[in-house]
């Protein structure tokens, strides 16, 4: 019986899976939302370029346009997989 309970309490409901997926995709889409129209496309292309050399995750490349005083700063973040750092 306890065996069953264990599964029941740990199995994620499909609604909680939906919520998690939504939180991730919405957060990602918001980062490029208020920037110029080319940001999402540039992000996709940069990902392709990085992937020519390193196998990275789908969301490894993040770009963001920020206002600092009267300067616009384009911030580019690439998350490398752990194994890439080692080799």
């Amino acid at each position: 019986m306890r065996f069953l309970d264990y599964f029941r309490s740990n199995r994620k409901t499909s609604a909680s899976v939906a919520k998690e997926r939504l939180q991730i995709i919405v957060a990602r889409e918001r980062t490029t939302r208020n920037g110029p129209d080319y940001l999402p496309m540039m992000q996709e292309e940069l990902l392709l370029v990085v992937r020519k050399y390193i196998q990275v995750e789908n969301d490894a490349v993040k770009i963001q346009l920020e206002q600092e005083g009267n300067c616009e700063v384009l911030e580019l973040n690439i998350t490398l997989p752990e194994s890439a750092a080692a080799s």
């Binding site: 409901t13 499909s14 609604a15 909680s16 939906a18 919520k19 939504l22 939180q23 919405v26």
Partner: peptide, 16 residues
Amino acid sequence: RVDKGEMLSVEDVKDI
């Protein structure tokens, strides 16, 4: 369906 965990709840959608 929300009770059964099959559908996003009001709170879920509000959070997002």
